[in-house]
Amino acid sequence: MNPPKLIEIRKNILKKNDELAQGLRTRFATHGVFVANFVSSPGTGKTELLKYTMARLTERFAVAAIVGDVETENDAIRLRKSGAPAYQVETHNMCHLESFHIEKAIAAASSQFRVEELDLLIVENVGNLVCTSAFDLGEDLQVVLVSTTEGEDKPLKYPKIFDRSDVCILTKMDLAEALEFDHAQMRASIDAVKPGMPVFEVSAKTGLGMDAWIDYLAGRVEEKQAVETPAWVS
């Protein structure tokens, strides 16, 4: 037997996912599609927030959603009530979405919407704050949601997902008073793990705080549309 030899590889483990995500990003850029990926624990209020958000933006923009869920098609059905199309991805018990899910979903959803014609593609990720943090989906914006019911130290328990996210939305603000929710402490927790992170406090039940969030997202979508297709995109 020859002595063992060391072969250098030096490659990112998620190279394939990242390459595919980069391909999607180029494709989205070509067509001026803004893509936002929403992550949280199960039950934080992603679907409720997105139903509200899509209903508000669907008059101004061509909006569609892709929803990942391990179990049912319920979320897609709920999102369609916004008036915008929603496609349910079967993750087959996988606890997160990967870029291949998005690519497949876009192809499979073509009878409901054509991605080239969209202004805004919303991705509701699987309810999970751990596993979703490693996978690039080609999005422009990652939004992490935390509800008033989850405790003011939640960001400190999941620093990785905050590190990967761009914006934080605090949901179920209508319950804040009853829960004696400590705004300052929650803000401090967020700032500890992601200094300077923009935070929106909203309630999907009462509409509280939604205007600021909707304006922010609409601004980001318009910003992307205003950018000329870069020359390197063929």
Binding site: K5, L6, I7, I9, R10, N12, I13, L14
Partner: peptide, 8 residues
Amino acid sequence: LEILSVEL
């Protein structure tokens, strides 16, 4: 999150 090398 990187693969450095393999021993063969």
